[in-house]
């Protein structure tokens, strides 16, 4: 390949570093880059310790959640060959959130740390399979039909989740936890948890890169994909499973964050083109930058309160979606 994707990669990497620095400095109590240097160098002052133990892990977690959303978006758009596909819109993220809500509110016989990601994955996968099934049965396999099926499924799952929240929350399980999650928000992780999230994200990148070549072939359309030797039915099933793993990871750590999975692949496609091998890492970087900055805004805009991250991305991403939709309807 040419050097262009590598140059774009370096540019995006640099932009992400800058975004992370801005993210760490931002907050209701703004830090300067000098404060940051001092804190990282091992300063024991309370302010420096807070930066290292609270703000830096939070910002890095936001970046990783964004990267996961960027990867998930590429997989979903690739599988459904639909540039408007997105985990949030197709009900997949909603399914993950329902699974997570069950894990948080329903007393079950397993520890929550295992149950939550497991149910989040089951929810993401189940919702996606349901949407595919509905659009197949109703014959609405085009982009718009599938989105409508996704919107309907997302609405049903949202209602179920709200019902569970109302019916099952009491003083012991706070509605606040679930609610902050539904609205999207990265919890501040401890450093070991952040390490785990890093491993999961790297694994998701590797997993989705394994699908890259076949996503390209699938993009030729089902007939040509079969003619070029792809077992389309089996591949879609595998790719939906992989996409659900990515979405479940993103939702488990970041809640319901809208539109990043839609916007990041588009922005990345403008930069590196539609081939999936360069697109996946590029979209992960773009997603990381978007969520890092959105999370900074969420923490710094209305001090001392924190705006839910999902609200920030929805306000910024909604118009982006409308623009894409309008452009698509015109052509």
């Amino acid at each position: 390949m040419t050097g262009a994707p590598i140059r774009t990669g370096l540019t995006l990497g640099l932009a992400l570093v800058l975004a992370i620095v801005v993210g760490v400095c931002a907050g209701h109590d703004w830090a300067t880059p000098a404060d940051l240097m001092r804190a990282v160098a091992g300063d024991q002052a309370l302010r420096s310790r807070l930066l290292v133990e609270w703000r830096i892990p939070r910002v890095l977690a936001a970046a990783l959640v964004g990267a996961l959303l960027g990867l998930g978006g590429v997989v979903f758009q690739g599988v459904f060959r639909n540039p408007l596909a997105e985990p949030y819109l197709l009900g997949s993220a909603g399914g993950a959130a329902l699974g997570a809500t069950v894990a948080l509110l329903v007393p079950l016989a397993m520890p929550q740390s295992i149950l939550l990601p497991l149910l989040a994955f089951a929810g993401a996968w189940g919702a996606t399979v349901l949407v595919i099934g509905i659009s197949r049965v109703s014959g609405a396999v085009d982009a718009a039909g599938m989105l409508l099926a996704g919107v309907a499924v997302a609405a049903i799952l949202g209602a179920l989740r709200s019902f569970l929240m109302l019916a099952l929350s009491d003083e012991t399980v706070s509605l606040q936890i679930v609610l902050s999650w539904v609205l999207g928000g990265v919890q501040t992780p401890t450093w070991p948890v952040l390490g785990l999230l890093t491993l999961i994200s790297a694994g998701c990148l590797g997993l989705t890169l394994l699908l890259a070549g076949r996503l390209d072939v699938l993009g030729l359309g089902e007939t040509m994909a079969v003619a070029f030797g792809l077992n389309v039915t089996r591949f879609i099933a595998v790719a939906v499973l992989a996409g659900s793993v990515v979405v479940a990871a993103a939702v488990a750590f970041g809640g319901l964050v809208a539109f990043v999975g839609l916007a990041a692949p588009h922005i990345a496609r403008w930069m590196v083109g539609p081939l999936h091998r360069p697109l996946l890492p590029a979209s992960a970087l773009v997603g990381a930058i978007i969520v890092t900055l959105a999370d900074a805004i969420a923490r710094a805009a209305l001090p001392p309160a924190e705006i839910p991250l999902g609200l920030v991305t929805a306000v910024a991403g909604g118009p982006f979606f409308i623009m894409l939709l309008a452009r698509r309807l015109r052509t």
């Binding site: 390209d216 072939v217 993009g219 003619a227 070029f228």
Partner: peptide
């Protein structure tokens, strides 16, 4: 699927790729 695709070339009536690939990329996928 793979050996079938190597033995039989198929040229469809309509071809409308979902992603706007370059000529080189399309030939390479083939």
């Amino acid at each position: 699927s793979a050996s079938r695709a190597r033995a039989i070339g198929f040229l469809p009536q309509y071809f409308d790729p979902h992603w706007d690939l370059t000529v080189q990329e399309l030939v390479r996928l083939g």
